[in-house]
Structures are given as C-alpha cells and as structure tokens.
Design a protein around this nucleic acid. Sequence first.
RNA 1: GGCGGGGUAGCCAAGUGGUAAGGUCGCGGUCUGCAAAACCGCUAUUCGCGGGUUCGAUUCCCGCCCCCGCCUCCA
Length: 476
Amino acid sequence: MALHFFNTYSRALEKFAPRHPPNVSMYTCGPTVYSNAHIGNFRAYIFEDLLQRHLEMRGFKVHRVMNITDVDDKTIRGAREAKISLNAFTEPFKRGFFEDLDTLRIKRADEYPGATEPHYLARMIEMIAELIKRDLAYQAEDKSVYFRINKFPEYGKLAHLNLEELRPTGRVRSDEYEKENIGDFALWKAWDEEDGDVGWDSPWGRGRPGWHIECSAMSTALLGDQLDIHCGGVDNIFPHHEAEIAQSEGVTGKKFVRYWMHCAHLLVDNQKMSKSLGNFYTLRDVIAKGYSGREVRYALVRVHYRVQLNFTFDGMEESRQALTRKSRQALTRIDEWLERLRETSASQKARGTPGPTDDFQRVLDDDLNISGALGVLFESIRETNRAMDANELGATAAKAWLQWWDEINRVLALDAVETVALPSEVEALAEARRLARLAKNWQKSDELRSELNARGWEVRDTKDGQKITRRVGPEP
RNA sequence: GGCGGGGUAGCCAAGUGGUAAGGUCGCGGUCUGCAAAACCGCUAUUCGCGGGUUCGAUUCCCGCCCCCGCCUCCA
C-alpha cells in the first residue's frame, strides 16, 4: 500500500500526493504560551513529529512551520496579574516549550513564527483589509472586525457542521450583539481596558489580532497560499481550522490545504484533563515522577493518533517495561539487543538467516499505524534474539539489522542515552567482585552486588562476565 | 439534537470475508552458584448485544446498548 493518510476534510483515507514532490509543506498549530504545555498538547506534537519523520523516511523533504501564540486573552490576563509586560510573561513559557520538545526528542520545525512579530502583524492587517474589500469582513459597532460567514458558503465543510443546527453552549459571549451573525468570528479585536498596554495600531483602530487570522497569515507567509498538510488536535477542527480556511481562501481564492490531519484527545484516567479533576499534568509533572522523556515519548506515540489515548501511570509503567523489560535496569531491551547485534556483526559467523524487511515502513504507510509498526519491531527483536541464542545469526545479517534499526529509529527516536562511564569506586567494586567470582566466593560476590545496587548500579552476570549499568531514573 | 472516535484476553493495543499481531501482567520451563537478561511454553473456541447477507463474519449490512470527545478562540 502506498502512503495514505486520513483526511479530515473528506473523512476518507487518501493517497498522499503533495503538490511539488518531494517537497511537503506542513503547518502545525503550536502552543499558546501562557503556561507550561501539558501532556495532551504533547500528544499532538508527537503525532506531528511522527508524521514528519515518516515522511522524511519516505524521501520527502518536509518544510514545517509551527506558530507560537503569544497574545490572547490568557496571556494578557497572566501578564496583567503578574504585573509585567506581555513579552516578559510569555518568554519563560516559550523557552520552557523548547526545552520540553528536546526532552521528548521532537524534531524542531523549520520556523516558529510568533503572533506578535511586526512582520506577521502587518500581514494579518493586510489580509483583513483584503477581506473587508471583498465584503467578507466588516467592522462592527464595537470597533472589532468580524468575518462574515454568510458570505463564505464553504464555512462548516471541514467540521461537517450545519450552522443552523448549532446549539448555544453558553461559551458564546452574550455581549457580542454587534455581530451580524452569531457565528461571525473576530479578525481584529478592538482594544478594551482589560488589554492594558497590549495593542497595535491598525486601520480600524488600536487592537489585537483574533486567534484564527494569525495562523492564516503565518502559514501563507511562510509556506505559500496552498499547504500540503495542516495538523492539530481535533478540537481545532471547529472553529479554528474552519476559520483559517475561510480567511485564507477568502483572500487567495485558492484551495488552502490538501490534507487536514487531526489527532484525538489524550484522556487521563478516562477523562479529559482538567485542573478541577486533579488529573492535569504538564510534561514536567510526569518527568518529576521519575520518568524519562523517552518513556513519555513512547507512552504518547504508541497509540494510533486518531484514537483517544488514555494516559495512566500504569500505562507509564508498561511503557517503561516495554523499553527496558526490567524496571531497575538502565540498559534497555533495545540496547541489549543492539549490543548483541554489534558483537555478532563483528564476529566471523557467516551463517545465513533472514535479514530485515521493510514491513515497519509499509505498516506506517497506512495512516501511521504505529501499533502495527511497533509490533514489527518487537517481533524482529525476538526473532533475532532467538537466532543469536541459537548461534545462527551471521555477521552480515547482524549488520543489516543494525542498519535497519538506525533507519527505523530515525522515525521512533527511542534509542537510549549514551552509556555513562563508571565512576572509579564503582569500577573498584566491580573488579573486587570479579576476583571474588573467580575464586567462587559467592557470598562475597553477592555482598558486592548489593553494595553496587545500593549505590544505584545494577549488576548482571553474563557468559562474557559481569555487566554494570545505571539504574533507571530521570534521564541524565 | 448535530458531528466525530471507540467497545478485541487482567490491563494496553493491531488486524483480516476463512477462522485472532505486538506490548504488559501472571504461571511453568531452558540457562545461571543464585539472580538478571535472552529464549521456549501456557493464558480470547473468541472480538459490546440482537438480527441479516454468505459455504464461512470479529471483519459487510440493519437495528440497539454503553463509553469518550467536539458543537464559536482547549492539542
């Protein structure tokens, strides 16, 4: 099966064909920097990371943009409460966001435009002016500028919503009488007292951009009028992405996005995360409980992106076990396997056994079927381990498997961190234990093993002697 | 009410019109001085429920039940 993705717009699996192969333009909705991002946010970013990495493995050259929303109600409120400037308020969260991306081994996008950058504000204003010129937007009595959805018949197509049947949910501000239609959304929000010193001048007076227009402006500025892929969480489908289509196509007259891809929500203990339920976790919260970024990455990537993922700490334990097989072992199941493969590849063994296939990649081609792909990985590990146990894996095959791992790991990014060097006192204890074992002094040997354990090191005896590894804790 | 996603072993989770990947947990075994790792074996006659189509359905169709999410600025 060739590469296929599920397109939210058509609600169907479609063969992937970018406009200008091998180039792929990809826009992903980024964070609003008013706090540290939570694990639900990262589920989306990891899905996008998997998507980018798989595309790259398949030979595409991905140009990816992720916006940073650094002005909105929440950032303004936060800055006001902290009595600091908007920029001073958002800056630490921006920095924290990039640190978190590194923790999770998420590849950097090519650009991270910010909504308050003058260049993009200018473009937003330009787009809004064009929409007004085309009668697709109007300035209301409250001085804000709104998009006129009645003039854009396509509005609602992405979400498959019949706008007449929308229920009021109480989340619509009742004071927005000024709008012609309840569904009209703000392109430019007129300044009010709550905004304090946050605001920019525009042809419609002082104010700030609406959330949706920022994405339309930055995506088209950096990627052109037509994008290959646009991603986000399902909650962005409506109204955010619907609005983006209306604004962008309203200005350019061209089809905005070819493939819309949305990931399902992450649940915690089967409920949506919320602070009041006490099931709200930032990435930092989970790391603070002793899990490594790699373990969190695995836990968030292992379930297909269109299925809701239920996050639990039992699931975190399971992820740890899947990677390491033994919770206190630092050497992972995968590393152990790689080490054996390296030894085998350096040997003179010439016996032929089947080498790797491209099953992993083929399974991912089917709308990023990660569970199937991981199944291929674990089966491969078991089969090659079995062959090595039986002394039946040749050096050439071992080399091929190592190469295979390098390839799939460019997508998974699940390799362990570098092995740390043994401190001298650990080295000394290990040497003493080696000598005790040589003398078959098992009591002494076990005492020394306990001593090493107590110092945070794990000892395993293999036919090649003892192996000392650091116990798993937070990633160094 | 509308729009989505899902109900597969204790738990997590793929998948196919021909009779259930993988992970985790548990038990037994090979190996080991003991452990660990690795490997082997066992653990769903069955895929929410009821009909239908079919030689055959978990997979297709119809109806129903349950869970979760979205419905105007939450990834």
